[in-house]
Design a protein around this nucleic acid. Structure first.
Lengths: 117, 117
DNA sequence: AATATAGTTTAGTTACAACTAAAGTATAAG
DNA sequence: CTTATACTTTAGTTGTAACTAAACTATATT
């Protein structure tokens, strides 16, 4: 198990918690994870995945061109159950969205043009 | 109990965890808390106490010129027990010191002159 | 009223996390 | 070998948390 402090640091970020939820009970490719958060670039997602991987909170494997991520539930100890309960909350999505908005850093992504040209 | 997310945010800071440990099982004045962390100014401590108080994680009362703080243990739910276990760790002090060094912001305090002038 | 003590608040500084854009890497397929 | 897909990494930007120094508030003491 990771040190409690390292764990607390890693899960203090709403963005990383969002990723953790996605890969908590099943594997997902980096691309699938990115699709679930269209407000950030692929690079941003990849960087947070790296943080989580280096903290030992997710495991990765390669398959063909894909990188497949999965939470390392055992690393979370009891905090895992806390997070699960948090995610069961019906208002979770709303709360997360508010947090992401509040803790956002760096420039906003340039909106992609959708046709019209 | 505070929202899990607010809780996670509050305890993600090593400095705030240090404060919480001090006021976890007994009351302490702001001055006593400050004495326990001579590497920062009184203002810095006061500001973090305010953050914790606004998150509902500590309670304050005034007595004479002192402001007396105490952790609101009930607000922590199961996380409280996690923190307690972390603090029981014999290496806790060392680990915390390393974290404080790593997450430090702002200018360093100007060392007080000790005589010699 | 003046001074001391105990703390809070405000204004300004700094380091860094979280981002973007673009370049780079790896695998697959024509 | 070239092009496409699926990422990761690097270089640069921005917002803000954590600080300092100093001004301020409140209570107690002389």
């Amino acid at each position: 198990m990771a040190s409690t402090a390292a764990l607390l640091e890693a899960i203090s970020s709403p963005r990383r918690r969002e990723i953790l939820r996605l890969v908590w009970s099943r594997e997902r490719t980096a691309g699938e994870i990115r699709e679930a958060m269209p407000d950030v670039t692929f690079g941003a997602v990849s960087q947070q995945l790296k943080v989580l991987a280096e903290a030992g909170l997710v495991v990765v494997r390669s398959e063909s061109r894909s990188r497949i991520y999965k939470a390392n539930q055992e690393a979370f100890g009891e905090l895992g159950r806390m997070l699960e309960r948090m995610w069961e909350d019906k208002l979770w999505d709303l709360k997360l969205a508010a947090e992401l908005e509040q803790t956002r850093r760096g420039p906003r992504p340039v909106p992609k043009k959708t046709g019209k040209g």
